[in-house]
Amino acid sequence: MTGAAPRETPREGGRLAELDLLRFTAALAVLAFHYFIAFASVWGERPAELFPAIATISGLGILGVELFFMISGFVILMSVWGRGLGAFALSRLVRLFPAYWVSVAVTAVVYGLTAATALDPKLTLGEYGVNLTMLQRAFGVYDANGVYWSLWVELRFYLLISILVIVGVTFARCLVFMGVWLLAAGFFAGSEQAWVDLVIMPKYAAYFVGGMAFFLMTRFGPRLVLWCLAGISGGLAVSAALERVAGRVDRVGYAAMPVPGWAVVATVVGFYVLMAMVALGWLRWLRWRGLVVLGALTYPLYLFHTAAAVVIVPALRDTLPPPLTALVTVLAAMAFSYLVYRVAERPLQELVRARRRRGTPVPAEVSGASEASARREAPGQALSAFPLATGEKASVP
């Protein structure tokens, strides 16, 4: 297996536009969960009672972060293939931090200079400074924004995959890495030990491994061993999702989050089906250029939709009907996200491209326009996204 040869892909040097679409869909799912289920203090009452027709599907948006993790497993393995640790680290720094720093600053301004109180983590200036490192959870500091918890998960995934980068990424080593991680995640499932959650991440490991398996199918073909890894990870993923959603429902009540177990299973299985379709090339017909823009919006939208809701919804909820208030808030969040992309992210990307044109060596993945890039020069923002708080308290995943 060490000598497994990659198959020819029809879009070598092209884009996986379908991943742009999936990433944007995951971001909208997270937004829907927050706006129409979780943000009771923003609306002043239960969102599920304000939007009963979409309560169940919005509740399933809690799993949008799981889709982000699957996509991250796919694109991060793609980005490290044939590259060194330094290039990988630089690419993650460039992709994750510019918009993130703006997000921390905006959150601090919203709670420090406005009358906004909903979802306020009540941090000191120093704690906001710690948040700038993205390592606040390692220091026992609350997240300034509830969605930041998933970035901590992403960072730990990057550290784990760095081991693979150090020893050298090959097909066989990927299989060993994925198999050992899945075995550990299954063995320690349900463990309350802090080190297990920190290192093995049994609640989320299956999603990353599933995404990696589907990338390997894209590169080497749909081999039986990869289907087996995907299937095992899918079983663990369903179990973890049922536990996470059930925990949320138990805390807030079924009326506040009317999500049945069968819908959770169907959603996670749907994620795996969609990623399999990407790996098998069944979604190559997606060619709309606007998907590139949606891909660019994804990470900023994930980071800024909470601040938009905290500021806009309380200002409009007593004047406009709930659906119109929600629509205005969503559009404003998307507009601001695009502005952040143009001002904070795109200039850095153009700077990197300029350095490449001048002949300065730069990791190829740093210059990609979005994480959906199918170039072997790699993806854009990792999901980071991705992605989502399961409750209103900023520090609770």
Rank of each mutant, 00 (worst) to 15 (best):
V340M: 12
L280I: 11
F304K: 01
V259Y: 05
Y299M: 08
L316G: 01
G253Y: 05
M217V: 13
M277Y: 07
P322C: 01
T298M: 11
R289I: 13
P321A: 06
Y204D: 08
A230Q: 11
V278W: 13
F336G: 09
Y302M: 06
I312G: 10
A230T: 13
G235T: 03
V264Q: 04
L242K: 02
A246D: 13
L280R: 15
Y207R: 13
V313H: 05
V330A: 14
G290R: 14
A263Q: 04
G270K: 03
L274I: 12
L301W: 11
W282T: 06
V265T: 09
G281P: 08
A335G: 10
L320Q: 00
V293A: 15
W282Q: 14
A266S: 07
P323D: 00
H305P: 04
W282P: 05
F336N: 01
A309F: 01
F271N: 05
A213F: 03
G247L: 10
D250C: 00
P222H: 11
L280T: 14
R317I: 08
V245H: 07
A213E: 04
V292T: 15
G247I: 10
G281R: 08
R248I: 12
S233Y: 09
A335S: 12
M217S: 01
G210S: 14
G290W: 14
M277E: 14
A308G: 06
L294Q: 09
E243R: 08
V264E: 04
V269E: 01
R289K: 15
A263E: 00
L291S: 10
V245A: 04
V310G: 10
G270N: 05
W285G: 14
I232Y: 02
M217Q: 12
P202S: 09
G295N: 13
V330R: 02
P258A: 06
F304L: 15
R244L: 15
F208P: 07
M212R: 04
L320P: 01
V265C: 02
L216D: 03
A266G: 03
L236M: 10
L226K: 15
A246T: 11
A213L: 04
A308N: 04
T267G: 00
P222V: 11
T267Q: 08
V264A: 04
F214K: 05
P260A: 06
L242V: 04
F304V: 10
A308T: 06
L320N: 00
V293C: 08
V273Y: 08
A255T: 08
S233Q: 03
S239T: 11
G247T: 11
V278F: 09
V313I: 15
R248M: 13
G261N: 00
L291G: 11
I312Y: 11
V278Y: 07
V238C: 06
V252C: 03
Y299H: 14
Y302E: 06
R219P: 07
T319K: 00
A241P: 06
A205Q: 09
R251H: 05
V292E: 12
W288M: 13
A263S: 10
A315M: 08
R244M: 14
A246Y: 03
R244S: 12
R248N: 10
V245P: 02
H305T: 02
A296K: 11
L316C: 01
L236R: 01
A263D: 01
P300Q: 14
Y341V: 09
W288Q: 11
V259E: 02
L224A: 15
C228F: 15
